[in-house]
């Protein structure tokens, strides 16, 4: 007897759940906003450049989906026709479609000549009293050879007339820590540098911009990698920032999305929740 009652109650529960989810469904015209987590260098640059953040107040719509990884961002956009998101230009591949911003497609050239607006610096920072070998590694990054590698990886070089680098023959160890966005290109640079200077070990820890800056301040690593500008409280600790490259941020949508071009104002309105359907931007 009791068992039957239990079964009926269970069934009722399932049916209630089903009706509730039925109401939750929405049309695919609705824009599904995907963003990065608070504090991420990519999000900081994106929101600031497009006017989503005004006076340090980030107005990203609170219903936006949040992810902390580039690969989840790509998979989400690739699998959802109504989604919009953003990734670093270097991580862009053909699983998704990058839209033009104000009529300019994101590419190395458009970021370099300044016509594509959504870009940010990659920064390496260190304290005074850097070891000779670490200084030599920085020289390599900023040399013609180092900048060539940065260009090959899809990032934007800062100096086309950089002096060429000659191997120093030094030995020792250089440790870098910080941004997960900078780390992939840094690993390529480290491999090439170690091939030239076999006695040097370059160690790269991916811990996020803030954590990397923190460990450079504390002396736990030689050089910090950051995908955002340093804060005042960080430069006050004696960190010296150097721009090593520029990175574009591509605004991405699903491949089946017809939208080719968005103005920066439209993107701002989408991310602040003023525009909620794709038909409004076509």
């Amino acid at each position: 007897m009791k068992l039957k009652k239990l079964l009926v109650a269970g069934l009722a529960g399932v049916m209630m759940l089903a009706t509730m989810t039925g109401c939750g469904g929405n049309s695919s015209d609705e824009i599904h906003v995907v963003s990065r987590e608070d504090g991420s260098g990519t999000r900081g640059a994106f929101t600031e450049l497009l006017g989503i953040a005004v006076d340090d107040v980030d107005n990203t719509v609170s219903t936006a989906e949040i992810t902390q990884s580039t690969s989840v961002m790509m998979t989400t956009i690739a699998g959802n026709e109504s989604a919009i998101g953003y990734v670093s230009l270097g991580s862009l591949n053909d699983e998704v479609k990058a839209v033009q911003v104000d009529g300019v497609a994101p590419s190395v050239d458009t970021v370099k000549d300044g016509s594509y607006k959504v870009s940010r610096p990659f920064i390496i920072a260190h304290k005074d009293g850097l070891s000779d070998v670490a200084q030599d590694y920085i020289n390599y990054i900023l040399s013609a050879e180092g900048q060539a590698i940065i260009g090959e990886e899809g990032y934007i070089t800062i100096d086309d007339a950089a002096p060429s680098y000659t191997a120093s023959g030094m030995s020792g160890r250089v440790t870098l820590a910080g941004s997960t966005s900078v780390a992939p290109v840094m690993e390529k640079l480290a491999d090439a540098y170690m091939a030239l200077n076999p006695d040097v070990t370059v160690e790269i820890q991916q811990s996020g911009s803030s954590a990397g800056i923190e460990s450079a301040i504390q002396g736990a690593c030689d050089i910090a990698m950051s995908s955002r500008e340093l804060k005042e409280e960080e430069t006050a600790e004696g960190l010296d920032p150097i721009v090593m490259a520029m990175d574009g941020i591509a605004v991405i949508v699903n491949k089946n999305n017809d939208v080719e071009n968005l103005t920066s104002e439209q993107i701002m309105k989408i991310y602040t929740g003023e525009i909620t359907s794709w038909s409004e931007v076509e």
């Binding site: 989810t21 039925g22 939750g24 469904g25 929405n26 049309s27 695919s28 609705e30 599904h32 989906e65 989840v72 998979t75 989400t76 699998g79 959802n80 109504s82 989604a83």
Partner: peptide
């Protein structure tokens, strides 16, 4: 992420997450 989320998207609309 690659199996359940697309199914939920088809069934209930929205992002599936």
């Amino acid at each position: 992420l690659v199996v359940m989320v697309p199914i939920a998207q088809d069934l209930f609309g929205g992002s599936g997450k």
